[in-house]
Design a binder for these strands. Structure first.
Lengths: 330, 330
DNA sequence: GTGAAAGCGCTAACAG
DNA sequence: CTGTTAGCGCTTTCAC
C-alpha cells in the first residue's frame, strides 16, 4: 500500500507538499499539483484514514447502536441520522450492541474510534454509558432515562400516545381492556403502561389484573399473550398491545381461532410500523416519528460536539392512527 | 484524555511496561502490574484504538454495506455475519452505502478503516469495487456477478428458486402467469426472471408480454404493478412477484378492489420475509437462507484475510415455501 | 523485569 | 511556493 511518502518521492516533492496539495490548497502551484496527482494515480495511493484520525484526534464518524438491527422501524431512524450526519460531513455507522459488550461497543466507544454515538438499546448498562460518555464522546440516548454529563436524551411521548389510544378505546365503549406490556427494563414500555393506566383511571375504569400481561415486544410474545387471554374467559372487549409486533402476534392467534377483530374484540398497537397498514384488519396504533427522532438526536449530538454542555431532553409528539382494528367506523 | 504515557508516569514505569502489562504478559511482575492497574483506574485511562490500529496496521473491524438498512431480512444476514465475526475477534459494523459514495464507503473502504467488507448493494459500481479490493481489503459480494482479485462472491440460488416456484404455479394449473420484476441492475432480479422463463418454457407455455411488468422491489411498485394489471383485462391467473414486498403491494391493491387471493388469482413472492406468514392470505414464497448467507460470506472473508487468494463463488440453496396464496390445499 | 527508541502514516506550524 | 520537523498514542524489538 503506497503511502504519502511514496507519492512525495515519486513526485519529487516533500511529504507536506503532497499533504496540502491533496486538499487543493492554493499554496502549491498547479504544475506541481499535477505531478503529485500523477504520482497518486500511478501508485494507486489511497490516504490512510487511521493515520489521519490519529493526527486529527477525531474521526468524523459517529455510531448508532441498536439492540437489534432487525427492528422494523430502525431504518427510518437511521435515515434521519444519516441525513443530518452527512450534512455535517460525518459518516454514521450502525452497530449492534448485543453479542457481548466485549465487541463493537468496546471497540467504538471505549477505545474512542468514533466522535459520538446515538444509542437505542434498553439493555446497555447505565454505568457503562455514564463512564464512557465524555467531552470527546457525547452520547445521545433514545428512550432511556439516564442523567449524566455528556449524556443527552430524546424520546417520543410514549405516555401521551398510550393515554390517547386508550382513550380512543374507551370512547369506543370498551371497558374491559387488556394490556400486553413490553419487557420491564424498557422505559418506553413502562411509559406506555403508565399512559394506559392513566386513561383508565381518568375514565374511572378499574384495571383487571388478569388482563395485564407481560410480553417482550416480539410477535411471538404477542401470540403467547393472546393464548393466555384465550385460556381464561371471558375475553376482554379490547386489547392494547404494547407494540405493533405483539399486536400482530395477537392477530395471528385470533385468526387461528376465528376470533374476529374488531367485531369480537378490538385491538390497538403502538409504533405504526409499516406493516400495520397491511394487516387484516389494518391496525389502529400510535405513530412514533422515527425519522425525526433520528434527526433530532443527531442534531443534539452535533450541538454537544460543538461544545454545548447542557441540552434539555427532547420529547417528540406521537399521534394516534385510527384504522380498522379498533372498530372505528372509518 | 489520559494516554498510556500518563499511566506510565503515574505508575513510575515506562510506557512499554504499561503496554505489555495491560495484555497480561507474564514478563511484568504482579506488583508492578497492580501499580499500573491502579494508575489506569485513577486516571480513567482508556486505550486509544486508533493509535493501536495505526501501529498494528489492522483494525479487527469489518464492514457490512447494505443499500437500504431497512430491508426486512438484513437483520438476519447481519446476525449471521456477527456470529462468525465475533468468533474471530472481529466487530462488524453496518453502513448504508447510499447517501453519496462520498461517505461511509469512502471513509471505510477507500481510506482503509476496516480490514474487509461484505457488500449487498446492486448499485455500487463495479469499477469502484474492483479498485478498492486488495490484499489488505478483501471484499465479499452478495448477489453480484463481479470478478476481480480479492473479490469473492456468495449468492442464493435465485434462478432455481424462481424456477421451482413457477413450476408450482404451473402444476396448480395456472398458465397465464404475470411476472413483476425487480430493478434491472439487480442480478438477483434477473436470475429470478430467468428461473421464471425457464419454467414456463419447460412447460411449453408462452410468455405474454403484457404480463411482464417491471418493479423496483418496493411495496409501492408492487401496488402499482397490480394497478397496471387491473387496468387491462383479462387478469392473469397467477402472479409471481419478484420479491415479497412487491407481493404485499399486490395484495393491498387486490384487497382494495375485493379481488380474492387465491380464489380469483394466485400469488407468490420471493425471499420469505417474516411478514409473509402474517399476510392474509399467507404468502407462498421462496425462502432465502439469509442467516447462512451472512455466515458463509463472513467465513469467506476470513479465509481471504488469512491469505487464500482464490475462493470459488458459493451458491446457497433456496426452498419453495407453500402457503395459502398460491391456492394450494394446504 | 523493565526501559529506550523507532516508527505506523499523516498533518501543521514554522522556516526558508 | 516548498521543505523540515515534531508529534498524535501505541507496540515492539533490543538492550540492560
Amino acid at each position: 500500500m503506497a503511502t504519502i511518502k511514496d507519492v512525495a518521492e515519486r513526485a519529487g516533492v516533500s511529504v507536506s507538499t503532497v499533504s496540502i496539495a491533496l486538499k487543493r490548497d492554493p499554496r502549491v502551484k498547479e504544475s506541481t499539483r499535477q505531478r503529485i496527482l500523477e504520482a497518486v494515480q500511478s501508485l494507486g495511493y489511497r490516504p490512510n484514514g487511521i493515520a489521519r484520525d490519529l493526527k486529527m484526534q477525531q474521526t468524523q464518524t459517529m455510531a448508532v447502536f441498536l439492540h437489534d438491527l432487525g427492528g422494523p422501524f430502525y431504518s427510518e431512524l437511521v435515515s434521519g441520522v444519516q441525513d443530518v450526519a452527512l450534512s455535517h460531513g460525518y459518516s454514521p455507522i450502525v452497530a449492534c450492541s448485543v453479542g457481548g459488550k466485549g465487541v463493537a461497543l468496546e471497540r467504538l466507544l471505549v477505545e474512542n474510534r468514533v466522535d459520538g454515538a446515538i444509542i437505542l438499546d434498553p439493555y446497555i448498562e447505565e454505568d457503562f454509558i455514564r463512564q464512557v460518555a465524555g467531552p470527546t464522546l457525547p452520547l445521545v440516548l433514545l428512550d432511556r432515562d439516564i442523567e449524566g454529563s455528556y449524556v443527552y436524551r430524546v424520546t417520543s411521548d410514549h405516555e401521551g400516545g398510550a393515554f390517547n389510544v386508550t382513550m380512543h378505546l374507551l370512547e369506543m365503549g370498551h371497558r374491559q381492556i387488556a394490556f400486553i406490556g413490553g419487557p420491564s427494563v424498557s422505559v418506553d414500555g413502562q411509559l406506555r403502561f403508565r399512559g394506559f393506566t392513566g386513561a383508565m383511571k381518568h375514565f374511572g375504569v378499574d384495571l383487571e389484573k388478569r388482563f395485564m400481561i407481560l410480553g417482550d415486544f416480539t410477535e411471538q410474545s404477542g401470540y403467547a399473550a393472546a393464548q393466555t387471554l384465550l385460556s381464561q374467559s371471558p375475553l376482554p372487549e379490547a386489547i392494547f398491545a404494547g407494540n405493533d409486533e405483539m399486536a400482530i402476534g395477537v392477530l395471528r392467534a385470533f385468526s387461528e381461532r376465528s376470533i374476529r377483530v374488531p367485531e369480537d374484540i378490538a385491538l390497538v398497537g403502538f409504533d405504526d410500523i409499516r406493516l400495520t397498514q397491511h394487516t387484516t384488519p389494518a391496525l389502529t396504533t400510535v405513530h412514533q416519528p422515527m425519522y425525526e427522532l433520528g434527526t433530532v438526536a443527531t442534531q443534539i449530538l452535533f450541538r454537544a460536539l460543538a461544545g454545548e454542555e447542557t441540552i434539555a431532553p427532547v420529547i417528540l409528539e406521537t399521534r394516534v392512527v385510527i384504522r380498522a382494528s379498533s372498530g372505528s367506523r372509518q
